[in-house]
Write a protein that binds this DNA or RNA. Structure first.
Lengths: 346, 346
DNA sequence: TTTATCTACGTAAACGTTTACATTTTAAAC
DNA sequence: GTTTAAAATGTAAACGTTTACGTAGATAAA
């Protein structure tokens, strides 16, 4: 007896279903899709048989023929942090409702991998792609290639400005501005921005917001003070932040990426800085644990889940009725500054 | 001019590539797959042309014909928490290396959705599935149906014991046992287990570990004390935990699921219980922020990423060389008890 | 009755690959 | 210069759907 002798169900396809019912396979196909061309009686018979025999349509064949995959690609740098996770949940929640499935692709925040992923997706495997671009993406040719193949793109959070495509973002400039003002209001004299190197627009917008807030508040010379974290290994970031804290001695920190929160807290612990007494910290993050950190972290909370929902709605809307001009859709959702102990007096 | 007039690249397929090169499409196909049947010279020509014309193989057609999709389904309850996120990262890291893509399906921890997802996957859309079962799954018929279609299954973390399939899990009994002992050692007299209702084996294993630790340590009467959280809305969980704290007055808490950490901390805050002075807490979680919580949380840290890697390796190993007996593979990875302030004296 | 319209279904050609099998070309052996 | 084997290529039939087009029968209009 063969070890791998799984007694397979005779794989059931439309042909067999048709034979069973004494119908042509065309009629079966139509019946399953509720076509007006088939009688109610026949539809019922077909559906009954399909259910009884556990028939489920072969998606490869179906989409090969129909050029419709009911699949969306989600391309993200990572799913390690809670932001992208929540966005994905948002996307999935609406995709699922509309009978779409999602293919997750990670770029590991690398331009090269992003190109190769996007290039692969030109083969018609998905109906559209939702993407948050890698932070070192400098060139948008791969996006244009995708568009030329007729595959629509929706950017979320991190878009690529040279490309004309729909986007769903948050108010990066304003929220960075507000957070910086909040730090200043709470007595900070020397606020550093800890951010990430790269051409992604959200980071420059946040940086601009920070700069403008300093300007508008007549900040001391020496500012702005911006350091760029390597973004790869946590240990490297911690070291960089620690060195900066020792050298520049800031009394306020604005962090533009989620995972920097842990790094910054750790760096402060290492050199014995008390938050918020010695230094106040605010961070762009959607981490659920922000409220129970030590101390509770003031956050710029982006509506991650809603962002995913909106992006998916836009894309699916376009895919089902082509009448919206997808490329002109640019949504900006407001973030919320949630003030907690890390910027408080205590 | 048509609004939707995307000047599509003439979609390039093998036929066109073949014509361009004055070759048959069979030879082109073989050349692209590095078949020994085609000369090095021709291979080079074909590959050059493919690259130049941005040809990328149509996966639908390819897998329709070859019955190989190079796609894995990952079926999880949610991806909201860091545990599943890390597992997915682990899976993706090895899948990507082996040229597989991943389709993410969420069950929202519901048996019905799990059935419908698994049922859909019987259509040959994926080569195999990696799954962590919903907590209220009572019946494994859908898994058997999948197996009968010849689609292999690997369970990770939460398996379904009635089904004969590969699994990668952690030492749930032992780690719950050890964590409970740790709480007892640190002076707890009355430890409650906060867990989740459902038939999933990991929860019963953790419960057993907890029970056995109490027995072995001659715990007081009144124990064990176990409450089951609704698992749906955070607010409900917080209320349940708060009520329990007020009524049963435990001095130790063992939490079996990640998202309960925030809920438990919040409940304690609400009624003014100091951690760890009034109550000590340990939790099964892989949250990165555990160390910077207030207070830092003692965790049973599961090797989530490795778990994903192992599960994917097993599955892909089986898919590429069918000679391993997949169903007999049962890996158990050790968790680590990471002791922090939440169970300390302070 | 004839013709037109509508309803319900069937036929067969795609979709873009892979692959068993057949054929040609090249090289080796005689 | 045959014959034989090996190497390189070609032919055509799948894979399981969808869908343009065709058609038979029923009903309505003339």
């Amino acid at each position: 007896m063969n070890m791998n002798d799984e007694s397979n169900d005779r794989k059931i396809n439309m042909k067999m279903l048709a034979r069973e019912l004494n119908l042509s396979i065309a009629t079966v196909s139509r019946a399953l899709k509720d076509s007006y061309e088939v009688s109610d009686q026949t539809k019922a018979r077909v559906k009954e048989a399909a259910a009884r025999l556990n028939y489920v349509v072969n998606t490869q064949a179906s989409s090969l023929r129909s050029h419709k995959t009911y699949t969306l690609a989600i391309v993200v740098p990572e799913i390690g942090d809670s932001f992208f996770t929540q966005v994905i949940n948002g996307i999935e929640s609406v995709a699922d409702k509309k009978k779409y499935r999602v293919l997750i692709c990670m770029t590991h925040d690398s331009y090269e991998r992003e190109m190769s992923v996007i290039n692969e997706l030109t083969n018609g495997r998905v109906d559209g792609v939702l993407i948050s671009v890698a932070s070192n993406t400098r060139n948008g040719d791969h996006f244009n290639a995708l568009k030329r193949k007729g595959i629509p793109i929706v950017f979320f959070d991190r878009d690529f400005k040279e490309i004309n495509a729909a986007s769903v973002k948050t108010d990066d400039f304003e929220s960075a501005y507000n957070a910086t003002c909040h730090l200043l209001d709470n007595g900070c004299k020397k606020i550093s921005l800890i951010t990430v190197r790269g051409g992604v627009s959200i980071f420059s917008a946040r940086e601009e917001g920070y700069r403008q807030a300093l300007i508008d508040n007549h900040s001391k010379p020496g500012l702005p003070d911006i350091i760029h974290c390597a973004n790869e290994h946590s240990a490297d970031n911690i070291a960089m932040i620690r060195d900066h804290l020792l050298k520049a001695r800031p009394d306020g920190l604005l962090l533009t990426v989620e995972h920097l929160s842990t790094d910054a807290y750790t760096a402060c612990q290492l050199i014995g800085l008390k938050i918020p007494a010695d230094i106040k910290i605010a961070c762009f993050t959607t981490q659920l644990t922000a409220g129970i950190l030590n101390p509770a972290l003031t956050t710029i909370q982006q509506p991650a889940f809603e962002m995913g929902q909106k992006a998916a709605e836009l894309l699916i809307e376009y895919l089902t009725y082509k009448y919206i001009q997808l490329e002109n859709q640019h949504l900006v959702l407001p973030s919320k500054l949630i003030i907690r102990d890390s910027t408080g007096l205590r």
